[in-house]
Measured scan of single mutants.
Amino acid sequence: KELVLVLYDYQEKSPREVTVKKGDILTLLNSTNKDWWKVEVDDRQGFIPAAYLKKL
């Protein structure tokens, strides 16, 4: 499984997104879309802008 580091706080703006904090380490589920990556946060799955994440 691939992990990503959150570079900036992000507040979800729709039900398909998730809220994260800078410094969080998340499981990356899908990065095929270059703009929005799907991650897992506390048993929730959702999207975050790829620019907010860095692969570890």
Rank of each mutant, 00 (worst) to 15 (best):
E2I: 14
V20D: 00
L3H: 09
L5I: 13
P49R: 04
L29M: 07
V18C: 07
V4S: 02
K13H: 09
K22L: 05
I48T: 09
V39H: 00
S31N: 09
K54C: 11
T19V: 03
Y10K: 01
E2A: 13
V18Q: 02
T32G: 11
K13A: 11
K54M: 13
E40D: 06
L26H: 10
E12Q: 13
T32F: 10
R44D: 04
Y8E: 14
V4W: 06
T27Y: 12
D9A: 07
L53F: 02
G46E: 07
W37N: 01
L28H: 01
K22C: 07
G46T: 07
Y52G: 08
Y10M: 01
L53G: 07
V20A: 15
L56N: 03
F47S: 03
R16Y: 14
L7Q: 04
K34P: 14
N30K: 07
D24S: 13
L3G: 04
G46K: 04
E2Q: 12
N30H: 07
T27L: 15
A50K: 09
S14T: 12
A51D: 11
Y10F: 06
V39Q: 00
K21M: 10
D43T: 11
N30T: 10
P49G: 02
P49N: 04
Q45E: 13
L29V: 13
K54R: 12
W37M: 02
R44T: 06
E12T: 09
E40V: 11
E12L: 12
L7T: 04
L7M: 09
A50Y: 03
K21N: 08
L7W: 02
K13Y: 05
R16P: 06
Y10L: 01
L56M: 09
D42A: 10
S31G: 11
I25H: 04
V41D: 07
Y8M: 14
D24E: 12
K22D: 02
P49K: 04
L3Y: 14
S31R: 08
L28M: 04
K34C: 09
Q45P: 06
V18N: 02
L29N: 03
D43C: 10
I25T: 06
D9C: 06
L5F: 07
E17M: 04
L3A: 06
K13P: 04
V6Q: 00
I25A: 02
A50T: 07
N30A: 10
E40M: 12
K21C: 08
N33A: 09
V4L: 04
N30S: 13
T32P: 04
K1E: 09
N33L: 09
Y8H: 15
A50I: 05
L5A: 06
E17V: 03
R44M: 07
L5K: 07
K1H: 11
F47Q: 04
L7H: 02
T32C: 09
K38D: 03
N30L: 11
V4C: 09
K21E: 06
D42E: 14
S31K: 07
K1D: 08
E17I: 03
L3N: 06
V39N: 00
L26F: 04
T19D: 03
L28E: 01
F47H: 06
G23W: 06
K38A: 13
Q11D: 15
E2Y: 11
L29I: 13
K54Q: 15
V41R: 11
K34S: 12
W36R: 04
R44K: 14
S14G: 13
D43P: 03
L7G: 01
Y8R: 13
V6H: 00
Q11I: 14
P49S: 03
K13D: 06
K1M: 13
L56D: 03
W36P: 01
L56S: 04
K13E: 09
L53K: 00
D35G: 10
E40L: 13
E2K: 09
S31T: 10
V18M: 13
A51Y: 15
P15S: 13
V6W: 00
E40A: 11
K22H: 06
K21V: 10
R16Q: 13
V41M: 10
N30P: 04
P15F: 08
W36K: 03
D35Y: 14
V18W: 07
V4T: 03
Y52T: 08
T19H: 05
G46P: 03
T19A: 04
P15A: 13
V20E: 00
D24V: 08
S14Y: 08
V41A: 11
E40I: 11
V39A: 02
S14F: 07
S14W: 07
L29D: 01
Q11V: 13
S31V: 05
E17D: 05
Y8A: 13
S14C: 07
T32Y: 10
V6P: 00
P49Y: 03
T27V: 15
E12W: 08
D9Y: 04
E12D: 05
L56F: 09
A50M: 06
W37H: 03
L53P: 01
D9M: 03
S14D: 15
P49E: 03
W36D: 02
D9E: 05
V20M: 02
G46Q: 05
G46N: 02
S14R: 10
F47N: 04
N30Q: 13
R16L: 14
T32R: 11
K34H: 14
L3T: 08
R16M: 15
T27K: 11
D43R: 12
V20T: 04
K38H: 10
G23A: 03
Q45G: 06
T27P: 15
A51E: 13
L53E: 01
G23S: 03
R44F: 06
V4P: 00
Y8L: 10
V6C: 07
L26A: 09
N33M: 09
K1L: 13
Y52F: 14
K21F: 11
T27I: 15
Q45L: 07
D9N: 09
D35S: 12
P15R: 06
D42G: 15
V4H: 01
L3F: 15
Q11R: 12
K34W: 08
K55Q: 08
G46H: 07
R16I: 13
V6F: 01
P15L: 09
Q45N: 10
D24G: 06
G46F: 11
Q45I: 14
I48F: 02
V18R: 02
D43G: 14
S14L: 08
E17Y: 05
G23I: 00
P15W: 08
V41L: 11
Y10Q: 01
L53H: 00
E2M: 14
G46C: 08
T27C: 09
W37A: 03
V4R: 01
K22E: 08
W37P: 01
K38T: 09
L53W: 01
K22S: 09
V20Q: 01
L7V: 07
L26V: 13
R16E: 14
S14N: 13
K34I: 12
V20K: 00
V18P: 02
K34F: 08
Q45V: 14
L3D: 04
L26G: 13
K1N: 11
V41K: 15
K38M: 14
V6E: 00
L5S: 04
E2C: 10
T32Q: 12
G23R: 02
K55S: 06
I25W: 04
K1T: 14
L28C: 09
D24N: 09
D9K: 03
V4M: 03
P15H: 10
K54W: 10
Q45R: 10
A51C: 11
D42N: 15
A51W: 12
L28A: 03
G23E: 02
Y52D: 02
D43F: 09
G46A: 12
A50Q: 07
E2R: 11
R16D: 12
G23Y: 05
A50R: 13
K38V: 15
L28K: 01
V18H: 03
D35H: 15
V18K: 02
K55P: 13
D35M: 14
T19M: 04
L7S: 02
K21T: 10
I25N: 02
E17R: 05
L29Q: 04
I48Y: 01
V6N: 00
E12N: 07
Y10D: 01
L29Y: 04
L29R: 03
D42L: 14
Y52W: 07
G46S: 04
K54V: 14
V20R: 01
I48L: 15
T19Y: 03
